[in-house]
Design a protein around this nucleic acid. Structure first.
Lengths: 147, 147
DNA sequence: CTCCATGCAAACACTTTGCATCAAG
DNA sequence: CTTGATGCAAAGTGTTTGCATGGAG
């Protein structure tokens, strides 16, 4: 959890600025964090992270920032049946799903490009339903919890 | 939405009774409804249904009944990113997923047996993660909303 | 100086809990 | 009667809103 702003984070901030949005301390930290975190985070995680970085932000700000980033298409909202939402960087080039361990609650990402293309084609033909997206999450036991 | 209790509902109630659980009016109605409803229902839907049937139950009762049926393995809980949970009969012989229309919010079930078996095998080999279940929901536009 | 961004308190929606009462078996 | 089922009120949890203030550009 370093303070350094990656090239990717910088680019995202620049793009937002271009659109007239401001580069706040909180916004930079949130984006930097999301860029370098490999698993989806909850609002609560961000509040904790910001506190650690010395920013005592209000939860409202965090929720609003997440809403903002979602509307900007920068992050995706996902739900892993935990009673809270999680967010992760929207990265179309790294389409992935999650392995959720039902014992230790760990979340791990797995990339599987084009995994459901065939299925979606079938759905379109059979049900005349135009699929624009899907959620696919696996539940089970992780490596550690299996032994 | 008839009042008749199907054979399946009767069997489920009998099995519960066998285990020492009681056959209440509310329980029969909830089970009957879940058996004959083809799409997942929210707690709110059940309360409405019960009111229509002349049972002015408290929401607490409904939530407790759903928890009970879930613990008994009779129903499954699912989440379609709506901010509320939905429940449907747990039927291993009719493994299915949902097509959620992002425009009219309709939910439709599609059966696709063994759809992800290959994928789950791959996950086990590559990540040593033992998959016990998954959720797969498709979002997009239904037949009506496409035109 | 102009707006976007923020803090605070309060409201919200959905769900859960404690405790006294009711009713199925 | 016994104990599971229920009602009611209140609390809990995650999230959102209204409004006044603060700060980036």
């Amino acid at each position: 959890m370093t303070n350094t702003t990656s090239a990717k984070a910088t680019a995202l901030l620049a793009a937002l600025k271009e659109k007239g949005h401001r580069t706040t301390k909180t916004r930079s930290l949130v984006i930097s964090y999301l860029v370098q975190t490999e698993h989806p985070v909850a609002a609560h995680d961000l509040i904790t992270m910001l506190k650690k970085q010395g920013r005592d932000v209000n939860k409202t700000t965090v929720y609003r920032e997440l809403l903002f980033l979602k509307d900007e298409g920068i992050i995706n909202e996902i739900d892993l049946l935990e009673g809270q939402k999680r967010y992760e960087l929207a990265d179309p080039h790294h389409h992935h799903h999650h392995l959720v361990c039902t014992k230790c609650k760990s979340i791990r990402c797995v990339e599987m490009p084009n995994d459901l293309d065939a299925l979606e084609q079938r759905i379109k033909k059979q049900h005349h339903f135009h699929v624009t997206g899907h959620i696919l999450e696996f539940f089970g036991l992780c490596k550690k919890c299996t032994r």
